[in-house]
Design a protein around this nucleic acid. Sequence first.
DNA 1: TTTGCATATCGCACTTTTGCGATACACATT
DNA 2: AATGTGTATCGCAAAAGTGCGATATGCAAA
Lengths: 112, 112
Amino acid sequence: MAFNKKNHFHAEEIFLSDFARTLAHPARIAILRKLAENNKCIVGDLVNDLPLAQSTVSQHLKELKKAGLIKGHVFGTKSSYCIDPESLKAFSEALNEFTEELMENLSDRKEC
Amino acid sequence: MAFNKKNHFHAEEIFLSDFARTLAHPARIAILRKLAENNKCIVGDLVNDLPLAQSTVSQHLKELKKAGLIKGHVFGTKSSYCIDPESLKAFSEALNEFTEELMENLSDRKEC
DNA sequence: TTTGCATATCGCACTTTTGCGATACACATT
DNA sequence: AATGTGTATCGCAAAAGTGCGATATGCAAA
């Protein structure tokens, strides 16, 4: 933001928007898909599957990790990543609660 | 993106990430909350409730509208916005399917 | 019709995100 | 020890996002 106003919003609004931002790139969605499909993936394979440079993929992995959605393990010269199921569940539930909350309020009324 | 590579990703990945991007700002989360609470809101009230200038709020509304999540109605000199329940439902379901898909794959295996 | 009001849009500055090549780094192999 | 391999990090450039004041626009009231 040009002049950060995050402090002026509620914690949960920030939590939700931060999580949404983590998913706000097709590459990161694709990475999560692949990690789930294969349970875990070595970085090299991800790079081969994605239309992005190795350094770029590495950055996206870093962001997902920072958000807590994935975990990284190093073995030898390679390293692999996998989804953190706990974290995924927490995020998923938070988002669900949010949309549920919105829809509940809506269902009471018809006009608009 | 420095050099747009959206074309290289799958349509659904783009759909999901675009939706996530729409939610990726606390102000837009807050706006959705208020719209749901009040069913609809005149812009002036939103501006009063948010720590942002009128022009900025207007821009966030524009983005939410562009994403299809809200609808705008003009009456007289004022205008009001409300959530589009259909669209909200569609988005919510898409996100759910995504996280379900991820978790299903994960539940089969233990190691990581 | 003039004036005022509510909202949208424009123009600009600043920040953040994205992408990539180059490089650093850690481990393996020879 | 030297070399190779796979990944992370750095530094930069370009693009997108954010915020706001100023202005435009469209309606309403006087």
